[in-house]
């Protein structure tokens, strides 16, 4: 077993185990804890797959940003300590069975496909040290240059590469920022506290 396969097995097992633990946990904060482990091990899988920038972005944006936001939401919406909104046992069993069935269907269909795997797709260049330095190629691809396939800026038929999607995403984020702060601003309660059943 090569080192990469060993690390992959460890992190894949951690990812899957904690994803299942997210489903099984009853309190929201435990769910958040398992979600952090799951997303963190997924970032490790990204590093293993030579996608170091994506892995770091996953850690910074997902784990450090989005999840902290979610936990903040948990604290703001909890009506008591360790609030549980449980599901009945029957529902859990049915959901588990359907989930297993669904997993079987998804994986059977996915592994049935013959993906175009070029013979030269050997990114296993651990020995040369050229692992996962995707920063420059990624940055250039945002400008429309794909040096690995010999495309320079302006020569690509599509023109600007990912520059336009990037701009759209940034405007989208700005709109989301404004919209979220508008939605979440402090308002008068619709129902007075003492009248709630």
């Amino acid at each position: 077993m090569s080192g990469e396969a060993f690390l992959f097995t460890v992190f894949a097992a951690m990812t899957c185990f904690s994803a299942i633990a997210v489903v099984v946990s009853q309190t929201v904060v435990r769910m958040a804890f398992w979600l952090v482990i799951s997303l963190g091990s997924t970032a490790a899988l990204f590093f293993l797959a030579n996608a170091d920038f994506v892995g770091a972005a996953q850690l910074l944006i997902y784990v450090g940003g989005t999840l902290v936001l979610l936990v903040f939401g948990v604290m703001l919406t909890a009506s008591g300590p360790y609030m549980k909104i449980g599901t009945s046992t029957g529902e859990t069993v049915v959901a588990g069975l359907i989930g297993l069935l669904f997993l079987f269907v998804v994986f059977a269909s996915v592994s049935g496909v013959n993906w175009r795997q070029p013979v030269t797709a050997s990114a296993d260049n651990v020995a040369t040290g050229a692992v996962g330095n995707t920063l420059r190629p990624l940055g250039l691809s945002f400008l429309g240059a794909r040096p690995e396939s010999g495309v320079l800026p302006g020569e690509d038929a599509a023109g600007t590469g990912y520059l336009l999607p990037f701009e759209i995403v940034s405007v989208h984020l700005l709109v989301v920022l404004v919209g979220a702060s508008y939605l979440a601003r402090a308002k008068r309660r619709a129902v007075p506290v003492n009248q709630v059943v």
């Binding site: 894949a12 994803a19 299942i20 489903v23 997924t42 899988l45 996915v110």
Partner: peptide, 14 residues
Amino acid sequence: YLLVGAVLFVCGVV
């Protein structure tokens, strides 16, 4: 990798 992705997906849906 696809198996890991499928497990994450199914866990999320459930």
